[in-house]
């Protein structure tokens, strides 16, 4: 009988303990980050969409148009358009024909960088397989958290042009958050 009464009291006490916990947290500071004014501190670890890595020339990608990325991609969101070989001048044509006749290897003059690198962000699942399979290390994640658009076409990137416009703009304005300043927490 007494045992049961004690149990009832301890049961009711557990309710008080719960109130104490919520009461304590009520008085403690908040842990949320008020987003538009502050951003979380690990925003740089986000992947973001793909972009091409420029070579020494900031307008020319490292890409060698081998197409490994498109082959590896699980969702077929990459299309690499190779450059057509430049139209050879008559002398070159002659030289080539001669070389061929001599059994020499014809040197391919085609520039290796792609003409177009089409990337559909709506399909991409950000797995990173393309980057890992790129022999030239020409792809990377942009870390652009603020990618937003009004239509599907806004997510259809032409990465070569994207890289060039980015190189055009001064490097300082690279995807700054609307109001920069990361929180301390």
């Amino acid at each position: 009988m007494i045992k049961e009464a004690m149990k009832t009291v301890s049961d009711l006490w557990s309710l008080m303990v719960g109130l104490k916990v919520t009461g304590r947290y009520f008085l403690e500071p908040q842990v949320t980050v008020r987003y538009p004014w502050k951003a979380v501190d690990n925003i740089d670890t986000f992947k973001g969409h793909l972009e091409l890595v420029p070579s020494k020339d900031p307008f020319k990608p490292k890409c060698i148009s081998c197409g490994m990325c498109a082959l590896a991609c699980p969702s077929n969101c990459l299309t690499v358009v190779k450059r057509k070989p430049p139209k050879p001048t008559p002398e070159e044509e002659k030289a080539q024909a001669e070389a061929k006749a001599n059994g020499e290897k014809v040197k391919d003059k085609t520039p290796k960088d792609p003409e177009k690198f089409i990337y559909d962000y709506t399909l991409c699942s950000l797995c990173g397989t393309c980057m890992e399979n790129c022999p030239a290390g020409a792809l990377r994640f942009s870390g652009n958290v603020y990618q937003a658009g009004y239509s599907r076409n806004d997510f259809l990137f032409e990465l070569v042009a994207h890289m060039q416009t980015k190189a055009d703009a001064s490097p300082k304005t690279e995807f700054e958050p609307p109001v920069a300043e990361t929180s301390e927490a």
């Binding site: 919520t22 947290y25 009520f26 403690e28 500071p29 908040q30 842990v31």
Partner: peptide
């Protein structure tokens, strides 16, 4: 109050 208990600001 709900917000502050749950350590978020609530409407602000």
């Amino acid at each position: 109050v709900a917000g502050h208990i749950q350590r978020r600001p609530g409407p602000f």
